Computed example of a mutant assay.
Amino acid sequence: MKVVARFSFPHEAHIAKASLEAAGIESVIADEHTINAQWLYSDAIGGVRLMVTEPDQQEAIAILATDFSTAVEQGTALSDEIRCPHCGDHHYKPFTKGKRPAFVVFLLLGFPLFYYQHGYQCQSCGEFFKSDDE
């Protein structure tokens, strides 16, 4: 087994391992439990190691070096098909209705009393709405 990447935290290694598994490359995470038990040892022992077999080493390094951020941005773009039911505009942003009062009550009482809803807020008229998909 050859080390293809080192990480400070185990969750970072698991994200990279998932990328390799999606490409069909078997991998192993080493020193994960040591770092979970005593995270201050991370730099001392070289961090959490992601290891693959020697034949897969170059392909794994290439996959881990690839920047997928543009694909993520394109994949999460809000659809222009959704329109505000109040004014018909398609300029909106994700919004959580009732989050602030629920948080304040939680701080004061120690338990949530209000509920909140996920949806969208129109940037033109300020109307809160949910999409038809939900």
Rank of each mutant, 00 (worst) to 15 (best):
K2S: 09
V3H: 00
V4N: 06
V4T: 04
F7V: 07
S8N: 08
P10S: 12
P10D: 14
K17D: 03
K17P: 02
A18Y: 07
E21D: 12
A23Y: 10
I25Q: 01
E26P: 03
E26V: 14
V28H: 12
I29Y: 02
A30N: 13
D31C: 05
H33R: 08
I35W: 07
I35L: 10
A37V: 01
L40V: 06
D43L: 13
A44T: 14
G47Y: 02
R49T: 07
L50F: 05
L50T: 14
T53R: 10
T53N: 14
D56E: 14
Q57D: 09
I61W: 00
A62N: 14
A62C: 02
L64S: 13
A65L: 09
A65D: 13
T66V: 01
D67Q: 02
S69M: 09
S69Q: 07
T70E: 15
A71I: 11
A71W: 06
A71V: 13
V72S: 04
E73S: 12
Q74R: 11
T76V: 14
A77D: 03
E81C: 01
I82N: 05
I82F: 12
R83V: 15
R83E: 05
C84H: 12
C84K: 06
C87E: 03
D89F: 10
D89A: 15
H90P: 01
H91S: 11
P94S: 06
F95P: 01
T96N: 06
K97H: 15
G98R: 05
K99R: 08
R100H: 00
A102L: 03
V105T: 15
F106Q: 06
F106I: 01
L108W: 10
L109S: 07
G110C: 09
F111R: 08
P112V: 12
P112W: 08
Q117W: 02
G119V: 03
G119W: 11
Q121C: 05
Q121T: 09
Q121L: 05
Q123E: 15
Q123K: 15
C125S: 07
G126P: 05
F129H: 02
K130C: 11
K130F: 07
D132I: 05
D133K: 13
E134I: 03
